[in-house]
Simulated scan of single mutants.
Amino acid sequence: MSNTELSDSQSHLTEKQATPLSNPSGEFVVQFWGVRGLVATPSSNTTRYGGNTACVEMRVGTKHLIFDGGTGLRLLGKTWQELEQPLEAYLFFTNSQSNRIQGFPFFGPAFVAKNRFHIYGSAASNSASIKQCLCDQMLQPHFPYPLQVMQSELHFHNINPGSEVKLGEMTISPALINTHQRSVGYRVNWQGFSVAYVTDLSKNPEQVEQEKILQLIQGVDLLIANSTYAPPTAHNNDSSNLQWQTAVDLASKAGAKSLVISHYHPDDDDDFLDRVQSEIKSSFPKALLAREGMILSVSK
């Protein structure tokens, strides 16, 4: 695997293979389990980058964080179940749209009594809490089993953008980055390292939103951001630069040391994303396109 230096400092980003849930050296490790936006797209044309919707795992010291619960959450859950040990993790949702929560009913570890999960989210555009949104999608006729069937300890927390969540030495800071979609971005700080998960960027953020985003991602070691695109009926792969430019511009302004683009449009196949990977390097050399299963370690 490649080893990419992020800056002139001692910080660097390492792409490597690792055993899920293991973090023996107490590092800051990021793994991508779902990289697709809108809807899952399993096909022969998405095998290299992946077809599952949003789910990113962060192993930070002894803590295990999950950001978004798209269909990639099911894969993460299957891996964790193989470990046959009690689990505790923290789930942070950016919003309550279907592509961010649709994997939760299939998250196997949540059905095991010995496990404990802390679930964080802000109010949806209709004022529903994250608990209500997760419950509603598991009601008939949408799903055969209600959330109450899950035997693990589920602790729900309503977060307000601008507040902080402290977990030992780690601080998770949420910010409202897309007012229209009521979407939250997160910054994780731990022992001098930082990763920002900002995956609902609009093509032209309003000035107030842009200021909040820049404040959240200022100087991060790793920025995980989305591609932006028109609605599905208007998607055009010929204008790839328009999809990635917002993330690149914000990363440059904020002095982010490295950038990972994720949340691809359903029509973005592997060949198209290969071309984008080459193109984006010319604008931001420390940029990568996320691939399902990719593991990055932020360390000294």
Rank of each mutant, 00 (worst) to 15 (best):
L21I: 13
I213L: 03
G50T: 04
P205M: 08
E82H: 09
N189M: 10
L75G: 12
S252I: 10
P146H: 12
V60Y: 01
N189Q: 14
P42C: 02
K212F: 08
K131E: 15
F92L: 02
S22I: 05
A251Y: 00
S262Q: 03
F143M: 04
V198I: 12
E206Q: 14
W33F: 15
P205C: 08
N115S: 05
F104C: 08
I213M: 04
Y90S: 02
A123H: 08
M294S: 15
I295W: 00
I295R: 04
K281S: 10
L65Y: 03
Q137C: 11
I217Q: 01
S194M: 04
D271R: 12
S239P: 03
M150A: 15
E164R: 11
S96D: 13
A256L: 01
E88P: 01
L21C: 07
G192H: 11
E57W: 01
M170A: 15
D8W: 07
R100D: 10
A290S: 13
R100P: 01
V248W: 05
G185T: 06
G50M: 05
D274Q: 12
Q210N: 06
Y197T: 08
L139S: 12
H157Y: 15
S194I: 03
A230P: 06
G219H: 07
P174H: 04
N3Q: 13
Q243G: 13
T19W: 02
G51I: 11
Q245V: 14
Q140L: 15
F111S: 13
G168A: 12
N178Q: 01
D221P: 00
S96V: 10
Q181F: 15
A254H: 02
N178D: 05
G61V: 00
C135W: 12
S125K: 13
S25L: 12
Y120W: 11
T4V: 14
S43Q: 04
T199S: 10
R36C: 03
L288I: 10
I159R: 08
S163I: 00
